[in-house]
Design a protein around this nucleic acid. Structure first.
Lengths: 141, 141
DNA sequence: TTCTCTGCAAACGCTTTGCACGGAT
DNA sequence: ATCCGTGCAAAGCGTTTGCAGAGAA
């Protein structure tokens, strides 16, 4: 199913989140910018539409979204938390040069089979680090 | 090969790291405490033997070790960097209750096959989050 | 001497907290 | 009148930086 076809208000209401103006704007940004942005990046983008927005509100809202399962925080870079609107399982590729995180559709059979042993698994994470082909080709220093 | 059998001095010298007293102590701690500790934990442990040690030195040393490939930083918890003395590929399980990180030997064929596409891969990471069986059984709140 | 190791103090960057205003119910 | 969303300012926390003294080469 394509959540892009679902109105943003409905997405929030289904998660019991009051669809305020600010929340709809942040969700809208996340829907159309699936670049795994950090709070600061979202903040700067929303600020163009809502100049009075605060970074605190971005953090508050992202935390609500996280608790309700609308976004997934990624601890990949080591410096800041990136947010993924897509909460279904998929892998990531982090380019250490340009900082972009892209999606990977790898299988996780090898991962899943370890979900035994009495431990309760709630999240599966898999990702690569390296240099993306754009950075290799453009050779930007 | 078992690096535990190799003298710590040799391990450092092979990596062109001057084997100072402090560095040997930190490496020694990492060798015998493969619990993926954070800087603070290492600091407190080393302090018992070297009361004048500073946290800065722990960070400095860990960064040297990282640059020389002796340790691998793990960005799993989102709050602090954990260090893994074992730099060979393996997965991790992070218990969100007790904070422990344990090793997992999963296959990464599903991961490896994506190393194409023109991107240069330098690191592969795979891990689970959840609640470990000890925490489930002890049911500590 | 020169270089590098070490450690104190301060700064840093991202994130969280405390609190107060204002609007909605 | 109460609740909740928002935002400012400050604090918090892990980590990094600047710099200086000590010690090795």
């Amino acid at each position: 199913m394509n959540t892009n076809l679902k109105p943003l208000q409905i997405i929030l209401q289904e998660k019991n989140i009051k669809p305020t103006f600010v929340r709809l704007k942040i969700l809208s940004y996340l829907e159309s910018n699936r670049t795994h942005p950090e709070a600061e990046k979202i903040f700067k983008a929303i600020k163009k539409e809502i100049p009075t927005i605060s970074l605190t509100t971005i953090y508050n809202t992202l935390d609500i979204f996280r608790l309700k399962g609308l976004v997934r925080p990624l601890f990949i870079t080591g410096t800041e938390v990136r947010y993924d609107r897509d909460t279904s399982f998929h892998g990531h590729f982090f380019c250490e040069k340009c900082g972009r995180i892209s999606n990977l559709d790898f299988e996780y059979d090898g991962l899943k089979k370890e979900s035994v042993d009495g431990n309760k698994i709630t999240e599966v994470h898999g990702y690569f680090k390296g240099v993306c082909k754009d950075c290799i080709n453009n050779n930007i220093e």
